[in-house]
Design a protein around this nucleic acid. Structure first.
Length: 417
RNA sequence: CGGGGCGUCGUAUACCGGUAGUACGCUUGCUUUGGGAGCAAGUAGACAGAGUUCGAUUCUCUGCGCCCCGACCA
């Protein structure tokens, strides 16, 4: 992608109404656009990052047997009335609207009900189970207060997976498998070391749940971290009896702020009972399907990565989520030979499938470097009179700032690492 | 939902009861060219409505929008 054609551009200052670091940097660098409070659009660079995160999540969900589909954003009250969750007392963040004929419908908040009803159409026997179904779908939640940039918004995409099992044991096995898959995801997007499986309250469905909390000062949650076991306890269940059950002592824990980047919890038969999702076991006996729910918000993950990994110069993307692998920066200064050489390297990278943002703009070096730092692509390759004279390109690592001259013959080899 | 704050060119800001200045951006030209260049000429603005006033961007009220703290957060 030639940067001269990229329709967004960077800004020196963030809008004054953004205080959250994630939104400030993402807006300054041209990744996102704020449409209104708690509602953000994803611009070309931002969409690339978003899709990369989605890709990582999708791979790990597929690896544990997840099947992807997409449910609807418009929701039929029928199934929600069956479970008793249509009322605003039960779910107070509903966006509701009407059809022309006056019939009430909802905008998706979550998808337990419609999916459970759908699965009931296809699952009748123990032979049909277990199944694991997930989607990336837009959720609308009428939050009283949106906050923290893209971390808590009124419209956001969520990856929600639901498990359907024949028994509690079968469910548990998958639950743990999914927990491991989640940790893989957080590791791949660069947050592994600072993300802790966190014991938390179960909300309205179960006694307890497991959250995945990433240490971050901008986080909304307070957790107590056990570094040795790499687990944590949410403040909301930080009680003696809970600690005893988990076999950890207060003295081993340290308090920290954290962002909830994922949440998994048992649903039991709450929804299968309400919506008639049953199966026949081997003896022909009718039983309720045991369910679980597993959520990750890719945008919140993206915001957390920015919060946690950026520095004073701008964003620092981990390799797997960066919008491009390489930022090729041409420092031509009006020298057409340098332009020609930069173009040549650009084509070389393209031909070899290396995704590259090519700063071919006719602006000064300082501006290009500052923009490059802000945008945060992991590897910068500089082409200039200097580098041409030395027979290669200069590579700069965004994370460490280390620079290195790479002979042209080994560029491809170096980038494939 | 309770409390607090704020709405001025595209962005960030300044001043003022007498219709608004600066910087960045953008346009044109010349110079410059490895860390956000210089000169020159342009471009573009008071959230909306009502009230007070000879006169309102400024004061008052209402609405709308935005931010922060708390509450909430399947």
């Amino acid at each position: 992608m030639r940067q001269s054609k990229l329709f967004t551009k960077t800004r020196k200052s963030a809008p004054k109404d953004e205080v959250a670091k994630n939104a400030q940097l993402l807006i300054r660098a041209g990744y996102i656009h704020k449409e209104m409070a708690g509602v953000y659009a994803y611009l070309p660079l931002g969409l690339r990052v978003f899709k990369n995160i989605e890709h990582v999540i999708r791979e790990e969900m597929d690896a544990i047997g997840g099947q992807e589909l997409i449910l609807t954003a418009l929701q039929n009250p029928h199934v929600w009335k069956k479970s008793g969750r249509w009322s605003d007392e039960e779910i107070d963040v509903w966006f509701k609207t009407q059809l022309k004929d006056g019939a009430e419908i909802g905008l998706s908040v979550t998808h337990e009900e419609p999916l459970t009803a759908l699965v009931a159409e296809y699952v009748q026997s123990y032979k049909d189970l277990p199944v694991y179904i997930y989607q990336f779908q837009t959720k609308f939640r009428n939050e009283l207060r949106a906050k923290s940039g893209i971390m808590r918004t009124r419209e956001f995409v969520m990856k929600d997976l639901y498990s359907f099992s024949t028994s509690e044991e079968e469910f548990r096995t998958f639950y743990e498998e999914c927990a491991r898959a989640y940790m893989k995801i957080f590791t791949r997007v660069g947050l592994g070391e600072r993300t802790f499986r966190t014991f938390a309250s179960g909300g309205s469905f179960s006694k307890f749940s497991d959250e995945f909390q990433t240490l971050c000062d901008a986080g909304e949650d307070t957790i107590y971290v056990h570094r040795g076991k790499h687990i944590a306890v949410n403040k909301e269940v930080y009680r003696d009896d809970v600690l005893k059950e988990l076999g950890i002592k207060k003295s081993e824990l340290e308090e920290a702020k954290a962002v909830e980047v994922g949440n998994i919890f048992p649903l039991g038969t709450r929804f299968s009972d309400a919506l008639g999702l049953t199966y026949k076991d081997e003896s022909g006996k009718q039983k309720s399907v045991v369910m679980g729910s597993y959520g990750i918000g890719p945008a919140r993950l993206m915001g957390t990565i920015v919060e946690v990994l950026s520095d004073e110069k701008g964003i620092v993307w981990p390799k797997d989520v960066a919008p491009f692998n390489v930022h090729l920066v041409s420092i031509a200064g009006g020298n057409s030979d340098v332009v020609a050489e930069s173009d040549r390297i650009y084509e070389l990278l393209q031909e070899n499938g290396i995704e590259c943002l090519y700063d071919d703009r006719d602006v000064r070096a300082g501006e290009k470097f500052a923009d490059s730092d802000l945008i945060g692509i992991p590897t910068r390759l500089i082409v200039s009179e200097k580098t041409i004279a030395s027979g290669g390109v200069e590579a700069v690592d965004r994370t460490t700032g280390k620079t290195e001259l790479i002979p042209e013959s080994s560029i491809l080899e170096r980038l494939s690492k």
